[in-house]
């Protein structure tokens, strides 16, 4: 992923800790966008087959971007916005998604 060509950036860049590494993210952008830009390989694995997955819809529908954000699992990284000093980790599949019945 690269920045839009020849444009002046309006975002403030902030540090974000991903898998223990510090990466640079843009404040206010979706967490998933920041991760995709630096680690385009994959963001999680299917809990069923273990195959690699990454964000698909970027609008909160597919749940392919579930990650642990600031210690809370099952966060949709495409819905969460980047703030100062976030900690993000990949997660393998969903962990105890719902309080109600399935």
């Amino acid at each position: 992923m690269s920045a839009q060509r020849e444009s002046i950036e309006i975002f403030r860049t902030v540090p974000l800790c991903f898998q223990g590494d510090m990466i640079t993210a843009k404040e206010g952008e979706p967490v998933a966008a920041a991760i995709l830009a630096t680690h385009p390989d994959f963001t999680g694995k299917s809990p069923v087959s273990g195959r690699r997955r990454s964000p698909y819809c970027m609008m909160g529908l597919c749940f392919e971007c579930l990650m642990e954000i600031d210690g809370i699992p099952n966060q949709r990284a495409c819905v969460a916005s980047v703030r100062m000093n976030m900690t993000v980790r990949k997660q393998i599949g969903t962990r105890s998604f719902s309080a109600g019945s399935k």
Partner: peptide, 16 residues
């Protein structure tokens, strides 16, 4: 990804 997802990336973070 979906084409819409790429548009969202472009809009929300200026990334392609």
């Amino acid at each position: 990804m979906t084409a819409g997802a790429a548009q969202i990336l472009l809009r929300t973070s200026g990334r392609i």
